[in-house]
Amino acid sequence: MEILFNFAGLSAQPFLIRAFIASGLCAISCAIVGVWVFFFKIPFVALTMAHAAFAGAVIGIFFGLNPVVSAVVFCLAAAFFIAPLAQKGNFSANASTSIIFSFMLGLAFLFMALIQENRALALSLMWGSPLTVSVRDIYFIAACAAAVLTFLVVFNKGIIAVIFSRDLAKASGIAEKPIFYALIILCALSVSVNISGIGGLLIYSLITIPTATAYQFSQKIKPMYFLSALFALAACWLGLLASYIFNLPTGASVVLMACLIFFISLCFAKNNNHYK
């Protein structure tokens, strides 16, 4: 890491090292979750999780609680309510997700307006700031990345079977529902623990864009995990450096860097139009 700092003409200050570690771990968990979100075609679920995390964090600040913990609670609650709400209302999971999305957005703006003190802190959760992450935040982020990686390694065969076909997995006795909901819960965790670093509204981009970039180079699942993590890491670290050097908002720099890498990848990618 010092090589990277020296290359950029920076000294390895503790807050900068913390920022790089946090964003690196965030990149890994978001990239893996992103591959699941991409192939299960549930980007809207990830977007809803991002807003639930933001609402939870804002409400946490309002009540004087740890915003990361309240973000986790709200994200998990949102994840648990998607399926029962769809069942009760007799409509698709997409419709119930949109209701939860609106509810969370409404809550977030309501409590933003009600917060008297710490409004700057609440606003920073919207855009994130990896340069201010604490050691405790890093523990949360590392635990989440470890959970995502462990789940991937332990349940890889089940994940492949469920991505291949949820119906066939169910028909042949594979526990497809627990696997699918575990993926959603890990998505919720990844979004919520990284809210202070990347920001509630931008974390969604870090889940979707590196995976879309990876898809330009490989359509097979195993290389996609690796490539997606690589592009997410590049976006996080280059975005962070750009933000530090040019004094830009960090979350926005990271997301714009991810977009830039995606557009560059479009120029170099193999032609994927054989599906048409």
Binding site: K157, G158, A161, I163, F164, A175, I179
Partner: peptide, 20 residues
């Protein structure tokens, strides 16, 4: 856009038989 190869797809039969 399924990212699974034919070989991996066939192996899901063994996953169902043996457990994940």
């Amino acid at each position: 856009k399924c990212p699974i190869t034919v070989k991996e797809a066939i192996m899901t039969g063994a996953v169902a038989k043996n457990g994940i």
